[in-house]
């Protein structure tokens, strides 16, 4: 628990240097972006072999760009910056802003980064769920390898980075006729999610033509894609609230099995996830329609 005792801080001036430091030290090196996850990780004993902290503040990885039909977010962009950016008020991107708003302490959002939220890869975080539902793509340096954010996160505190690699940026493709929404259920404003759910829908002639749905909170090692529910919602008119409710209530539990812990039982988590899913679908839909 107290074994987080690194001895060196490296402060690369360029991405080449960053890659070199990470290659040289392998799993003994760890990038510090915002740093707000250190406590949560170290108390679980996950940082005990870290000897080199890598300060990436000189690399200018904090940016939000709109380019080639994509929104591109630098890995070191703070959650507060994302929350403040008007780009994320667009219907298809709103889930990301919802997720930022649902994380409460400003003291965290002012420094915590989008890249950090992904790389920390703890299953109860909010940002990954939103990114997954927006089908975000991550770009991994130095070779600019690209993959789905959902696949990048492999499991508990486990991401697809090889020695020498680092998360550089996250991109989301612009979408027509699409709206998204993220919802979270927690006990207090500063609590981790008992359950969270992010939904992105594409609407065609008033009906849902496709949906991307993820649930998180405590649903295993990482947030879960609700594939069957996505299928089930195709062609549904969300303003038919009974139909929407039936669709989700009869399906979501087939997609995901939540865990029981101090905060909630598995059954309750699922019940709440269904409510969140329904409300998020409805809100995402409303965002396209207005």
């Amino acid at each position: 628990m107290y074994s987080f005792r690194p001895s060196v801080v490296a402060k690369p001036e360029s991405e080449e240097e960053l890659a070199e430091v990470l290659r040289k030290h392998g799993r003994n090196a760890r990038i510090v972006a915002g740093g707000t996850g250190i406590y949560e990780l170290s108390r679980r004993g996950l940082l005990s072999d870290v000897d080199v902290l890598v300060d990436i503040s000189k690399l200018q990885l904090s940016y939000i760009k709109e380019e080639g039909g994509k929104i591109i977010i630098g890995a070191a962009t703070s959650l507060e910056t994302i929350q403040r950016s008007s780009i994320f008020s667009r219907p298809y991107l709103s889930a990301l802003r919802d997720a930022c708003l649902s994380i409460q302490p400003l003291q965290v959002k002012n420094v915590a980064t989008l890249g950090g939220a992904l790389c920390t890869a703890l299953p109860f975080l909010d940002m990954p769920v939103a990114l997954f539902s927006l089908e975000a793509i991550v770009t991994i340096g130095p070779d600019m390898r690209e993959m789905k954010a959902y696949e990048f996160v492999k499991g508990f505190f486990d991401v697809d980075l090889k020695d020498g690699e680092y998360l550089r940026e996250v991109s989301i493709s612009m979408k027509e006729k699409s709206g998204s929404s993220f919802m979270k259920f927690s006990l207090t404003s500063d609590d981790w999610a008992i359950a969270n759910c992010s939904v992105s829908v594409v609407v065609d002639e008033g009906l849902i033509s496709s949906a991307s749905i993820f649930v998180g909170g405590a649903f295993g090692e990482k947030p879960v894609r609700a594939v069957r529910t996505e299928e089930r919602l195709r062609g549904i008119l969300p303003s038919d609230t009974d139909a929407l409710k039936n669709a989700i209530d009869s399906t979501l539990h087939l997609d995901a099995k939540p865990e029981t812990d101090v905060k909630a039982s598995s059954e309750y988590r699922m019940d709440v996830a269904k409510v969140l899913c329904r409300r998020a679908v409805f809100q995402a839909y409303r965002r396209v329609m207005t």
Partner: peptide, 27 residues
């Protein structure tokens, strides 16, 4: 609390409120 849960350690860094217990000094 040293876990970012209480805010009594809050300081302002470059104009923004941060938890000084959650920021490493070198940052």
């Amino acid at each position: 609390c040293e876990t970012g849960g209480c805010g009594s350690c809050t300081v302002v860094v470059d104009g923004k409120a941060v938890y000084s217990c959650m920021m490493l000094a070198f940052q």
